[in-house]
């Protein structure tokens, strides 16, 4: 795995919403994700609450445990400390906001236990 974050988190990256509108990554708001998911035929937004943040054996990584969706499925993800998540009503947040800002120029809040992140799931398949 690469130690680099995906390019679309870099400040100034151009993001296309589902209705075709273009926005910079740092200008995205909660409504942009919600509205984009509404018009998506496959994807819907779930609420994923941060339950735990543990250190990882991998340098500069953390293991984040989320409680996902209405069924509160427990899901762990291992990410770099600077990996940004979008918190409802708050915006970009990472475990190490200083590092995120240093590497990506993206302003971040500190991701904490109890924060509710935007995640994606599939709309029910029939």
């Amino acid at each position: 795995p690469s130690s680099a974050l995906p390019p679309y988190f870099m400040k100034g990256s151009i993001i296309q919403l589902a209705d075709g509108e273009l926005k910079r990554v740092e200008d995205l708001r909660t409504e942009d994700f919600l509205q984009s998911a509404e018009v998506s035929t496959e994807l819907k937004i779930d609420s994923s609450t941060v339950e735990r943040i543990d250190s990882s054996r991998t340098p500069d990584a953390v293991i984040i445990q989320f409680s996902v969706g209405e069924h509160k499925a427990q899901v762990c993800v291992e990410v770099l400390v600077e990996y940004p998540f979008f918190v409802f009503g708050q915006g970009w947040s990472s475990c190490c906001p200083d590092r995120t800002t240093q590497l990506l120029a993206l302003s971040c809040a500190k991701l904490s236990v109890g924060d509710v992140c935007i995640s994606l799931t599939l709309k029910s398949l029939r």
Binding site: P7, Y8, I15, Q16, A18, D46, A73, S119, T121
Partner: peptide, 19 residues
């Protein structure tokens, strides 16, 4: 200039079962 789709930016976590 590359343009990225909105859904790249948020993680895909476990699909929920609908009842």
């Amino acid at each position: 200039v590359p343009v990225f789709p909105w859904h790249s930016l948020v993680p895909f976590l476990a699909p929920t079962q609908s009842d």
